[in-house]
Structures are given as C-alpha cells and as structure tokens.
Simulated assay, not measured.
Amino acid sequence: MTFKTLTALSAIAVCFIGTAAMAQTDWPQRTINVIIGASPGGDTDFNARTMARYFEEITGVGMVITNMPGGGATIATSAVRQADPDGYTMLFGHTGHLIVAEVSGLADYGIDDFEICCVPAIDQGAVLVASASSGLTSVEDLQAAEPGSVTFGTEFGGYSHLQGLIFQEGAGVEMNVVDTGSAAEKIASLLGGRIDVAGIAYGAVQDYVEGGQMVVLGQPNDERNALLGDIPTFKEQGVDFVMNNPYIIAFPEGTDQAIVDKMGEVMEQITENPQYAKDLEQGFKQPVAFMPKEEGVARLNEIRDTYMPYSDALQASR
C-alpha cells in the first residue's frame, strides 16, 4: 500500500469519524416521548412537564408527556425498556418506579436495565400527616398509641408502603397498614376519617393543614426543607427516618451514550435557571437538586441497598 493510499484512507477515516460524532451530537431533531408511570397532576407529572417546558426553550425541540399509571409504574417502565434505543423515548420516574418495584417483586428488572442519565430533582416536599379526627398532633402521640390502633394509608408494594415500614421501625411504633390507593385517595380517606396517617407531598395537603383538617407530624429529610415552613424533621424529633425520593431520567438500554450525556447537560442547564427554581417552589415546595450520571447512579444504588432488607415484607403484601 502506497503512502498516498494510506493518506487518502486516513482522510476518509477522519471524515467518517467526524460525521459520526456530529450525528451523535445532532440529537434532538424531533419530539421526544417522555413516559411517566403516574397520573396527571401529581408531583412526578409536574416535574416532568416543568422539565419539558425548559428543555424546549434550550433545544428548540418539544417533549410530549405520556402518562402510563398502573402496575406500580411497571406499565411505564416496561414501555420504555421495549422502545427503540434511539433517544426519542425517555423515562421520567423516581425510586418508587425503578427501585421499589424491583424490591417488592413487581418488576424483575431495575436501574441496571436502563441507561441512567441523571437525577434531575429530589422530592424533598413529602411529609407525614395525620387527620385532625385522629387526635394525633405529634410523633409522641403516635408513639403513645396502642399498637395497631393507628391506621396508616398506603399503596401496597409501592413507595409509600416502604415509607410506612421504615417509619415504623425508626419510630418504634406499630400501625395498622392498609391499602388505600393513590395520593388523591389517601387525602379523601384522611378527610373521611377512614385512615389516620399517610405520607403525602406537602403541596397536595397544605390547604387542609392550614384549614385545620390535617396535622403535619414531620418531614423525612436529613435537614429541613425551608420551603415547607416551620416543619421539623423526624431526626430532630429523635426518629431515625430519612427518606428522600430522587427522580430519575433514563433511556432504553443501548441508547447512544452521547445522547444520554447530552440530556444530562441540558438538564443541568435547566436547574441553573432561577425561574425553574421558582416553578418548583410554587408547585410542590421543592428545592432545586441535580446529580450527574455517576453521582446519581451511586446514590440510587445506596438507596436500593437500604430498601432491599424490606423485600420480604413488601412482597408478602402483594
């Protein structure tokens, strides 16, 4: 092979590599389908739609939010797993969808079966609330109650079920855990006196708290989320109960890493926008948080290791 031939082949190779790299960074060029395993109106739906609005501002490309509730979010996660790994189908979920579903046996797959992009936000707006009719006004009241006399409303096998199990262990209490359903159904059951305590986003119950129909027992954050106002953490009250819920952006396994990285970069840009911070505060009292891929995956694996000991209890409820 002559020197001229080698030079020509090298030039062709360089052009090919350059073209391939450009194709990888050309994403996105058309609308992206964002699948979430939750109904419209909740915190997951709110976070996904807020992200989509700012994503379009930055990239000029729109996102369509597809709600696929049911099955502990396995309908949504299965749809993403089975989608073409072309970068135009994306999951916006949280640890309940990709970790608790695995721990509870609802799914035989987990975070390792997706291309995790980042942790775009962390739900720090959850609280445990008691109905006013229960007579509970503090953690001390709950600890003083007869074992099994307080009813905790949850969704069996889901995130809020795990929330109840971990709280009971940390607080040293024994509650009657019942399957109530979604957040909206928990609120209705609290107001109707059918359950006494539930874990719910504060933004969804703030009006009832201010109206005297519900009492906040505490927030399960490591440090106070100041956006919730004067609500103490459970740690402050001597209860070992810290349970934040990171959101997760993920693509089907096999998606080009350049696309995954590009989405992470765009999401980080979004979190740097002051108006985005205001939107999160007004929506669900949620401070801005972001973890790039490596940090996010490490955190998600820590959470999975923490939740796995509760696998038998969750699976027994199914």
Rank of each mutant, 00 (worst) to 15 (best):
F114D: 03
E102H: 12
E140C: 03
T137G: 13
G41A: 12
A107M: 08
V150Y: 11
G135M: 12
G110D: 13
T89M: 13
P40Y: 07
R49N: 15
E56N: 04
G70F: 11
P147Y: 05
D108G: 07
S133P: 02
A145D: 14
M68C: 09
P85C: 06
G125I: 09
A79I: 01
T95F: 01
G96Q: 07
V100F: 12
D113G: 09
V80N: 13
D141T: 04
A130N: 11
G71T: 06
S104F: 09
Y109P: 12
E115V: 14
A145K: 11
S39G: 07
Y88I: 08
G70L: 14
E57W: 01
E146L: 08
R53G: 13
M51H: 10
M68Y: 04
D123G: 07
Y54A: 00
P147V: 02
G37W: 03
M51R: 05
P69M: 11
G71Q: 05
V119L: 06
F114Y: 15
Q143I: 00
E57Y: 00
T66E: 15
S138A: 12
E115H: 10
S138P: 04
Y88Q: 07
V127S: 03
A79M: 06
V127Y: 12
G70N: 10
E102K: 13
T137P: 01
G71V: 05
L136T: 05
A144E: 15
P85W: 02
Q82C: 05
T137I: 02
T89Y: 04
V80K: 10
V64S: 15
M63H: 04
D113M: 02
V119S: 08
N47P: 00
S78V: 01
L128V: 11
D141Q: 14
G62W: 00
R53C: 06
H94E: 14
I99A: 03
G70C: 10
A38E: 03
V80W: 03
I111S: 02
P69K: 05
Y109A: 08
V150F: 05
G62M: 01
P147M: 06
A126I: 04
G71K: 06
D45K: 03
E57C: 00
S133V: 05
V129T: 08
I116N: 01
M90D: 04
A79K: 12
L142V: 14
I65G: 07
N47E: 12
D108S: 14
T95N: 08
L128I: 13
D112P: 13
Y54R: 02
S133A: 15
H94R: 13
P147T: 06
I99K: 07
A145R: 13
D141V: 01
G70E: 14
M90P: 09
I116S: 00
